[in-house]
Amino acid sequence: MSDFMPEPICFDNAEGHKLFGIYHPPDFRRPPRKTAVILLSPGVKMRIAPHRLYNLMADKFAAMGFAVLRFDFWGLGDSEGECPEEFLADLYGEIQIGRYVKDSQCAMDWISREKGFDRFIIGGLCGGAITGLLTGADDPRCVGLLSVGIPVILDSANLDMSRYITQWQATVIRQGYFRKLFSLNAWIRLITLKSDFSLIWRSVFRPSKPGEDTGGKQEPDNAEKSNVNPLFAPKLFALLERGSPALMIFSGSDRLLYEYEEKFASKHRQRLEPVQNLLTFYVVPHANHILSLQEWKQEMLQQACTWLEAFE
């Protein structure tokens, strides 16, 4: 077996659950780096990520000389434990408020103990990105956040998501309804009361409503009418104001980009200014949330690798 051979590993989390992962040793032909990269599971798609995105990222980063660990959180992938949620949205909501911060800390402990690294770039796609932020904000071992499609809002199966649509979503949905004016099936759905009337009302008849919520003014993140994750802004500022940089990559066709801009960036412009140099923001044009096309993946990877070059 070659020196580049990934290594299947297991370690215990704080509750004693055995977590499964894959450790990618750095390419020994490259100058050794002092920083390791930890890729955190996106939602329920375990350490692999959609269409093996994490395998690709790990191989690329290892070839740059980084040690990389990707692993499954408790209750997901191959790891022990059971997630009690009945609905995916509730599980995502738990992830977004930090269910897996402790597991991520245990992963750092494992690499420190077994491989001798004590500085980490942490993050990943979607749920992996928000877990990376929540972990990194309070842990000085995290010297950077690598985020792809980070969610700013909280998911829940009990939420009426039509209440929280962004301007961009309202526009897209409205255009969709206008296209359906000549669709017989759409009219049948409407007449038989199968349509989402709440969504039609908010996108077609009250298109300015989402903007009215914020109006560019500071709105408390815990306001009843807000679905913004109240942890997002404080944790991101904690990370940046500590001097740790963050890479924020978004997909151009992903609602998460518009939620980030409308529900976070536009509301915190002033506070963002002094830390702007630590925040690298990049949009992969037209891409979908999971970056399924080859050119989207490559563009994201290129940005991530360029950003990572700065780390020892």
Binding site: M1, S2, M5, P8, I9, C10, K18, F20, D78
Partner: peptide, 18 residues
């Protein structure tokens, strides 16, 4: 006991959990 491992040829290994 649950054990993750690679098996098969070195140039075409498979991942498994036993």
């Amino acid at each position: 006991k649950e054990q993750p491992f690679f098996f098969g040829a070195e140039d075409n290994y498979l991942f498994g959990i036993l």
